[in-house]
Amino acid sequence: MKIGLKAWAGAMAGAALLGTVSVVPAHAAEGQFESYINSWRAGNESRRWWDNNDTWDYTGIYFQGCEADGGDGFNFAGLRLWKDVSGAPDRSKGTRTNYCGWVDYGDPDDAGTYYFALTDVSSGTFISVDYVKVAW
């Protein structure tokens, strides 16, 4: 009877371990930062960050609390992700339209220094965003 109990206890411990391992995400975000935007116009750039490309995670930009100085208020902002290239023109990794939420650039698949720039404002000239989160 003791052998059966030990086998059952071992099986339960193994099941508990498998259950614990399965809740761990396959890829953890490599990095992130939080900030805000105050009176940006087309051409303004974010701070830069280093992406080791150690994970296959997306690069995303989140806006919350968006305002524009135009009469129609904030509708959207055009954002372009750039890879900083020393001694050469920076490389565009795509443009997305942010409607005051998340935009996803996918996995840039390239280690390096990145930043984003405002390319378009839907209404007016300037935007302000209370909360900005960039994750990669």
Rank of each mutant, 00 (worst) to 15 (best):
M1E: 05
K2V: 11
I3Q: 14
G4H: 04
L5G: 08
A9D: 06
A9M: 10
G10Q: 08
A11Q: 07
A11P: 02
M12A: 11
A15R: 08
A15H: 04
L17D: 02
G19Q: 05
T20W: 09
V21E: 02
S22P: 08
S22A: 14
V24D: 00
V24T: 06
H27R: 10
A28V: 13
E30I: 12
G31F: 00
Q32F: 14
F33G: 07
F33T: 05
E34C: 06
E34L: 07
S35P: 02
S35E: 03
Y36E: 06
Y36S: 15
I37A: 01
N38S: 15
N38K: 14
S39V: 04
A42I: 02
A42C: 08
N44I: 04
N44Q: 14
R47W: 00
W49M: 04
W50Y: 14
W50D: 10
N53H: 09
D54F: 04
D54R: 03
T55R: 11
W56M: 13
D57Y: 02
T59M: 13
G60R: 12
F63H: 01
E67W: 13
D69G: 05
G70D: 07
G71F: 09
G71Y: 06
N75V: 09
A77G: 08
A77S: 15
L79D: 03
R80Q: 11
L81A: 01
V85L: 11
S86L: 14
G87Y: 07
A88V: 07
A88D: 15
K93H: 14
K93G: 12
R96P: 02
R96T: 00
R96M: 11
Y99L: 09
C100E: 07
G101S: 15
D110Q: 13
G112A: 09
T113M: 12
T113I: 12
Y114D: 00
Y114F: 12
Y115D: 03
F116V: 03
A117Y: 00
T119D: 12
S122R: 05
G124H: 01
I127V: 10
S128W: 02
Y131I: 06
Y131A: 13
V132F: 05
W136P: 07
